[in-house]
């Protein structure tokens, strides 16, 4: 029968390296933050075209990173609290995340239109403003390109920190329970497949 053996690792089992590298590159040059768009567009594309969550299931480097760190004994492996896995939290966080994302796009537009100057900060957890001008070297790029990079890296760093905290407190991939991308792609898949069966 098709009993699954301990199969050799595939190329996509190493995508955690890309996720770790992404976080490091943000310290080298903030413009690398643009690469994070891959983590937004690829899962959406797969869900919209393929109607599945193979991004979460196979390719998510962040999920792998949490799995790996959890496997090193950094996770308490406790159940997530009930509220965290409730629908209102999952979709509430998605809406909150959307609001923050569009706020970031608005700031980018303000800089593009000249209404606001470029702010060389990375905002952690929506409140802590970390000076980040030391990672902005290619100052000849348009201001909005850099502003988007700072904003986007803030989103990525914040969600990684949240994921790390819940990785330690609960199961390694607790982030998946409230991941906005996961929620969005699941909604797309449900809409595509219908709620049959």
């Amino acid at each position: 029968m098709s009993q699954k053996k301990k199969t050799a690792r595939r190329w996509y089992d190493y995508l955690w390296i890309a996720s770790a590298l992404y976080l490091l590159l943000g310290f080298v040059n903030i413009l690398f933050a643009w690469l994070g768009m891959i983590c937004f567009l690829v899962p959406l594309g797969i869900a919209l075209i393929g109607g599945n969550k193979s991004y979460c299931n196979r390719y998510c480097g962040r999920g792998q990173l949490f799995e790996l760190l959890g496997g090193l004994g950094l996770s308490r492996r406790k159940e997530v609290p009930r509220f965290l896995k409730s629908k209102w939290f999952r979709y509430g966080f998605l809406i909150f995340f959307f609001a923050m994302f569009f706020g970031m796009l608005y700031t980018t537009w303000l800089v593009a239109s000249g209404a606001q100057d470029l702010k060389q900060v990375v905002t952690l957890l929506w409140t802590i403003r970390l000076p980040w001008q030391w990672a902005h070297h290619l100052t000849n790029v348009p201001g909005w390109v850099a502003q988007f990079a700072f904003g986007f890296y803030s989103v990525m760093l914040t969600s990684t920190v949240l994921g790390l905290v819940t990785m330690i407190l609960f199961k390694p991939r607790s982030w998946c329970v409230y991941c906005p991308m996961g929620a969005m792609t699941q909604l797309i898949c449900k809409a595509k497949a219908g709620k049959s069966r």
């Binding site: 969550k53 196979r58 799995e67 998946c176 329970v177 996961g182």
Partner: peptide
Amino acid sequence: DHCVACGCCV
């Protein structure tokens, strides 16, 4: 109903 389809189980 509360499955997030992350694939950890798979």
